[in-house]
Structure formats: structure tokens, C-alpha cells
Write a protein that binds this DNA or RNA. Sequence first.
DNA 1: GACGTTTGCTACGAGCTCGAAGTAATCTGC
DNA 2: GCAGATTACTTCGAGCTCGTAGCAAACGTC
Lengths: 193, 193
Amino acid sequence: MGFEEAPFDVVEASRRVWLERWDEPAAASGMAVYTAILRSYQLLADQVNDVVRAHDLTFPRYEVLTWLATDPDSSLSLSWISKTLRIPPATVTNIIDRLEDDKLVRRVPHPSDARTTLAEITARGRRVADEATEDLNASVYERIGLSEAKRNRLVDLLAELRAKGSEFDVERSGEVIEEVRLRQADHRRSASA
Amino acid sequence: MGFEEAPFDVVEASRRVWLERWDEPAAASGMAVYTAILRSYQLLADQVNDVVRAHDLTFPRYEVLTWLATDPDSSLSLSWISKTLRIPPATVTNIIDRLEDDKLVRRVPHPSDARTTLAEITARGRRVADEATEDLNASVYERIGLSEAKRNRLVDLLAELRAKGSEFDVERSGEVIEEVRLRQADHRRSASA
DNA sequence: GACGTTTGCTACGAGCTCGAAGTAATCTGC
DNA sequence: GCAGATTACTTCGAGCTCGTAGCAAACGTC
């Protein structure tokens, strides 16, 4: 799948070098954490990229498309996308340009604030998003080599790491997510009525 | 440090959407694992990049330089670098070009195989590598917000994930690392003799 | 209601990544 | 000892990221 086995575990090898050379256990373990995350990221990103590329997407384009597909209004402002997916504004512009070229998304002016523009998913975009997600689920996500219990432990440890590094607003996160879910539930109820 | 807090935890929010929409727990947990790794990677990479940039390096350049700095011969073949650091050959060429421009590394022909060229670290390169590492240790690695016990648990879980995804040769990894350490120990002994 | 500040987006450009094709050296099988 | 395959590296070019600068709309203050 686009990569070869390395001859040995680079994380473990570096950790030993660090312990011997820098004599500060916290530096060695921190380096190991970063290197392990980097390598794991590369391993999974390779697989994910292969899948989304088969649907004529890149991962950032797929990510944006998926958030649009699950939004009750089918549209999000470019600045919201930039903030929550942590993509610089100039990059968001480029991503939406490409998605628009492929007719998966449409730019729409914001009804009350003329400064902001919304990206709205098209029917075609929704179809592509769903197909890509099913493929990703089956080809990558369900095949990660860890038991359900270990996946949860891993996600929890990374959540703590991110929270301590203030990657997201820990205080408000829970309620914001609840708000969003309520809006979605409302939307589904009224759509099926 | 170059990023703002997101309004909520994207990993947790996506996990809930997945559970409701795709009804396959393994897909939801796998997606959460990938997203958590991606976000953690971005969080730490931002910090790491800020530090190495202050030393006029990019992370891949720093990584190569560090491996050269700890090598007993102070030199590695470009193909070895490509394989073990998982960097495509064309990218290695570019990295070594830039390091050579900055006089941190020198290209040297391989003594017995005219096809392969070695990258050899210069005195200046060694100094830059050490300074950057001290800075990274103090500014990033020692400050990761997890206890020593949790760092170890995290690194172990990621090692299992990588091993199951055959990121490295599990069978041989241990002995290869031992070999390298013996060579390094030998080298130090003879250097101080 | 005018003025300075903030916010949201886009245009531009420099820099990086990496697939594909090309060149040169080496190895393999006969 | 030679033809064909393999290995190592480089060149080229397309595509992506993202910092910077710019513009327009909206907001806050007086």
C-alpha cells in the first residue's frame, strides 16, 4: 500500500540514543511520544490518502466535505471551517476552490453578513462524501490493528495530551457538542415530518 | 504558538456522528483513532516546527541531521535515509541539497559502490543538530502534558498499532537496534582510546 | 454618522513533497 | 563476459501549503 517496512523500530532506537546522549528521561519520553505519533500518522495517512484519492479527493477536501454532509443546514462558513479544522484561511479558500471546480460544493453568500461566504454541499458532493466514507470505514478504520479496548485507551490518552496542549476548549467542548447534536436531532425530526 | 483553540473536541464530536450515522462501532473507533492521531500530530508538529525553524531547519532536515550526528561514521547513504526515515528518494535528494547549501552536510562517494552516495555531517552540522535538539527537548519534549507512566503507555499502544500495520520489521527490530548500539559503543571506546 | 479597528475572505508567491522518467552503476544467470 | 534486470540517485514538473498583503464589510466609540 505504498510503503515498505523499515528495518527496525525507529522510535525505540531513538529513545535509547536520547537516554544515553541527553540524560533527561522526560526529553527521551517526550521525543518518543512525538516520533511515535509522527510515524503512526504517516502509516495511517498513507492508507487514508490512497482511499480518498480513489474518489478524486485529498484528505482535507474529504474532511471538509464530510463536515458539510453532516451539517443540518448543509452549509458552513469558511471561517468556521478554518477555525475548527485548524486549516489556515488561505488553504480553506484553495480547498473550496477545488471542491467547487468538481461541483461538490457551491459558494453562497451569508444571508445577514456580507463579509462571510458559506460553502454549501451539492447532491453530488453528498454522494461522493458517503461513498468515500464507506470505503474508508471498510478499508482503513475497521482494520486498525488494535482491540476496541485499546483503541479507547489510545484515544483517551491522546485527548488528554491535546487538552493539556489546549488544542480545544475543554471547558465548553461538552456543551457545544450537545448543542450541535440537538440541532441535528431537531433537523432530522422536522425533515421526516 | 501559531494556533488557536478550537471551540470543541473534533474527535469526540465526529465519533458521535459516526456511531449514529454508520452503525459500526469498529468504524467509529477506528475513525476516532485516526483523527486523534492526526490532531495530536498537528498540535505537536506546530510546536516542533517553530523550534527547528528558529535554527534554520525544517523537521525532515533536522531529522536527517540528527541521525547523521549519532552515526559512528558520521555518514549514511541516501538510500538508507530514504528507507528508514520513510522519505521518498526524490525528497531525500532535495533535503540533502538544502543541507549542503547550508554547509551542514557534504556529499561523499561510497568507497566501494559507485552507485551510492553518502551524506556526511560537517562540524557545523553537528553543532546545529545539538543546539536544535537541546532546544526541542526543553521547549517541546519535556513539556508534553502527560505523566511519565502515560507517555510510556501511549508509546506502547502506538508501537502495537505500527507493528500490526507492519511499519517496521518486528522480527528483526530488536537485534538490529542492538547491533547499532554495539557499533556505537565500539566507536566511542576507540575514539577515547 | 464618521473614523479607526476588527473580521472574513482572496490573490500572490515562495517553498516543500513526491510521482514519473531518465541515467549510471552493479548484479545475475547463462 | 555479456544481456537484461535491479538498484541508487537526480531532474522535472504538477500540486499542495501557507505567510503576507490587500480589500471590503461590519462593528464600536464617540
